[in-house]
Amino acid sequence: MNKQAPFSVCGESLSAPMHICGFFDSREQQYEVIIPYILEGLEANDKVINILEGNRHGEHCRCLTDNGVSITEKLLSGQLEVLASENTYINGGKFVADEMYDLLEKSLLSSSRAGYDSVRACGDMVWALKNLPGTDELLEYEARLNLLTPKHSCSLICMYDISSFNESTLKDILLTHPYVIKDGKISKNPLYVEPSALLSSLSDLRSGSVKS
């Protein structure tokens, strides 16, 4: 049975489970939001998972260190994981929604068994700009996460660079997240569509394209 877990982001007190899209226009703005979120999680005995491009790991760990995190200690204990997009979202050079969903679900289950009170995950979605095979499954994957999160004590922030993604993609992404971070503030997303309805619509569209 899932339990509610308090957390804060952008200065707002919230309760997990929660699936959030973070829209950022710079690396600095992104870190202004996620660093306090990560630090609070490490202090609260939460499992913290960060997924970003492999070439950003050095910079990311230095930023955490500069903010007082004992990186080596937290990595060795397993409380903090810094994973590469290349080994998760686009493992093998392609995106497979089912595989990424299963990977995340297994991580949530193992974190609970390990005794962590909750899981906080931040995923940088820049990998989706590479247009690798399977990227068209992104919207379905994001929608399905709303079926997964209620089963676990977790908060997930999917981070999108609004200067890199086109407006159409960002509008689609808004359909899949109950909460949105914009301009350093978090709010309930009025454009959110319940996953059952959105997945049904996506299935209909896919069936129509196959028939045509």
Rank of each mutant, 00 (worst) to 15 (best):
A16P: 01
K211T: 09
L174H: 12
D136V: 06
C158L: 11
Y101I: 02
L174M: 14
E32Y: 05
L75P: 02
L148F: 06
E140G: 14
E81Q: 08
G134P: 12
K130R: 10
L170T: 03
A84N: 13
S70D: 07
H57S: 08
S196G: 15
Q79G: 00
S111L: 00
L64E: 03
Y160H: 12
L80V: 00
L156I: 14
S212D: 13
H60E: 04
G78M: 02
Q4N: 09
H60M: 03
N55S: 09
V180R: 13
Y192I: 11
R62K: 04
L148K: 07
P190A: 07
E12A: 06
Y37E: 12
E194Q: 15
R56K: 15
E105I: 00
K211Q: 12
E32H: 05
H177R: 10
S111N: 00
S207Q: 10
E53L: 12
A44T: 00
D136T: 06
A84R: 11
K182V: 09
S196T: 13
D183L: 04
A114G: 02
I173S: 08
A121R: 09
M159F: 07
N2W: 01
M125N: 10
Y89S: 13
S26E: 09
L80S: 01
P6W: 00
V180S: 11
K182F: 14
L108C: 01
A114D: 03
N50H: 13
V69G: 01
L148S: 07
V210D: 13
L132N: 10
V96Y: 14
T72Q: 10
E194S: 15
L83C: 11
C63L: 04
N50E: 14
S77N: 02
I186T: 05
P195S: 13
E99A: 13
Q30N: 09
E40T: 02
V48I: 07
F23W: 08
S201K: 12
A143P: 12
R62H: 05
T72D: 09
L205W: 11
C10Q: 08
C158A: 15
K3H: 04
L175M: 09
G58I: 03
S155K: 05
S209L: 14
L191P: 14
I162F: 06
D46W: 00
I49Y: 10
R144F: 11
E137H: 07
K188W: 13
D183A: 08
L132G: 05
V180M: 11
F165W: 14
P36W: 05
R27I: 05
K106N: 05
I181K: 08
D66S: 01
A5S: 02
I49F: 08
D98K: 05
G93F: 05
I49E: 09
V119P: 00
T65W: 03
S187Y: 08
S163I: 07
L64H: 01
P178D: 06
L139S: 11
D172P: 01
V193Q: 09
L104Q: 04
E81I: 01
S153V: 00
P36V: 04
S15M: 00
K47P: 00
E43F: 01
A128Y: 09
S70E: 03
E59M: 04
Y101F: 07
S201F: 08
D98F: 03
D117A: 03
H60R: 08
V96N: 11
E194Y: 15
K211R: 15
P17S: 02
D98A: 06
I173L: 12
Y192C: 10
V193W: 06
D136L: 06
V210Q: 15
